[in-house]
Simulated scan of single mutants.
Amino acid sequence: MARSSASAGRSLIEPPQVTDRCTLTGGVWYSYYDDITVNQASALDVDHLVPLAEAWDSGAYDWSAAQRQDYANDLREPWHLVAVTARSNRQKADQDPSTWQPPYEPARCRYAAEWTAIKIRWQLSIDPAEQQALTDLADACPTQRLPVTDDQP
């Protein structure tokens, strides 16, 4: 996968209104995992693209509490936390690309690139099955660009 400094973008299409009771009304989001446009915030989950359990298994167990908190709440890169349908997020759970990929096949190249960028940025390890899945996806996605940043956690 080639590298690009351009971000893949966020899920928000139209911003919601915040009521005086701190609830959301309106708004439109795009869940790229399953190619669904959502107009109810309650139908969405905010997904850690690389799940917290996966990060733990890949080296976060050795981080300080502050580093783990920084990872969990990272808003510096738009691909780290993504709004997706609750259904797709729950199907994914804490799986890596060797056992789960977005059901919308055209999203898989972006998903693999963003997964890889997060693993590199946070210096997380990749197990052999995960590496094979990412290699297979990279081979199938020769024009996909890898999002990068100069900003280290």
Rank of each mutant, 00 (worst) to 15 (best):
G59Q: 03
D139F: 13
C22F: 02
G27L: 15
P51S: 07
N73G: 12
L52F: 11
E54G: 07
Q132N: 14
A93I: 09
S64F: 06
D35S: 12
A138I: 03
A55L: 04
T99P: 00
P147L: 01
D35W: 01
A93W: 10
Q40N: 15
Y30S: 05
L49C: 08
D139H: 10
R10Q: 09
A41E: 12
A72R: 14
D20L: 05
V28L: 14
E114C: 02
A107M: 03
D127M: 08
S4A: 01
Q40W: 06
A60P: 15
Y111P: 02
Y111I: 01
R121S: 08
Q69G: 03
A43I: 02
D45N: 12
P78E: 10
E130A: 11
R68H: 08
P106V: 01
A129G: 10
E54I: 10
L12H: 06
H48D: 13
A112Q: 02
G59L: 11
W79C: 09
T135C: 04
L146A: 02
D150F: 11
A66D: 09
T149W: 07
P106K: 09
A93L: 10
V148T: 14
P102E: 02
P142E: 09
E105Q: 11
A41S: 13
A86V: 05
R90N: 15
W100L: 06
A53E: 15
L124W: 15
Y111F: 13
I13Y: 06
T85P: 04
A86T: 14
T37P: 00
V84D: 07
S4P: 00
Q40I: 05
Q152T: 06
Q152V: 03
S5Q: 08
V18P: 05
D96K: 08
W115E: 00
E77M: 12
P16R: 10
S11W: 02
T23L: 00
V82D: 06
W63M: 11
I13C: 02
V28Y: 13
S64R: 04
S5C: 07
D47Y: 01
K119E: 03
Y32I: 00
Y33T: 04
A43H: 12
L44D: 02
R121V: 04
P97C: 04
Q131M: 07
L49A: 10
S11D: 06
E105D: 07
V82M: 05
W63N: 05
D20I: 02
R90K: 13
P16L: 15
V84Y: 07
L124F: 15
A133L: 07
Q40A: 13
S42Q: 10
K119Q: 05
S7Q: 13
S31W: 00
A129L: 15
L44V: 05
T25I: 09
A41I: 11
C141E: 03
